[in-house]
Simulated scan of single mutants.
Amino acid sequence: MRLADAVVLDLTGVTDKAALMDRCAVTLALPAWFGRNWDALADCLTDLPEPVTVVVTGWQEYARTRPHEWRTAQDVFATAVDERPTRLCVLLSLGEGLVGSDEPPATRLG
């Protein structure tokens, strides 16, 4: 899994769980059976067909408006990473990027 090949999960404008689940479904190309709940997201993340690095950007507004949901989302992603460490890596982008760098600063979940 290389950062250059990462899937960017942009949460800009996401302010509730429904929007988060919709964004995950589209960005991660989750299967039609994805039930748009925490358990279904966890199942889908551990069943991704190929190794993937996910970089989560624009998450700050969601974290601020729905802190309990955001903590749950972080737990779901971290647990999935712990269960499939060679197949899934989730990074949180902390801002616009470092001066002189094409890659955003990131924090690893899990």
Rank of each mutant, 00 (worst) to 15 (best):
A25P: 02
W33D: 15
E50C: 06
L92D: 04
H68M: 15
T65D: 14
W70Y: 15
D75P: 01
S101T: 09
G110Y: 03
W70N: 07
V76G: 08
S101C: 11
D102H: 13
P49D: 01
A73H: 05
E103M: 10
D16T: 01
V52D: 12
T27H: 02
L45D: 02
M21L: 05
P85T: 10
N37G: 10
W33T: 15
A32V: 13
R36F: 11
L20F: 14
Y62Q: 08
G110D: 04
A4D: 15
V7R: 07
T12Q: 14
V81G: 00
P51N: 05
R108G: 09
D82C: 13
V14W: 02
D47E: 13
T46R: 06
L88M: 01
S101F: 11
E50I: 06
V99E: 12
W38Q: 10
R2K: 15
L11D: 01
D39N: 13
K17R: 12
T107A: 15
D16Y: 04
V8C: 08
V56L: 07
G100I: 10
E83W: 12
K17T: 13
S93F: 00
L11I: 04
P104G: 09
V55W: 03
P85H: 10
G13W: 09
E69K: 09
K17Q: 11
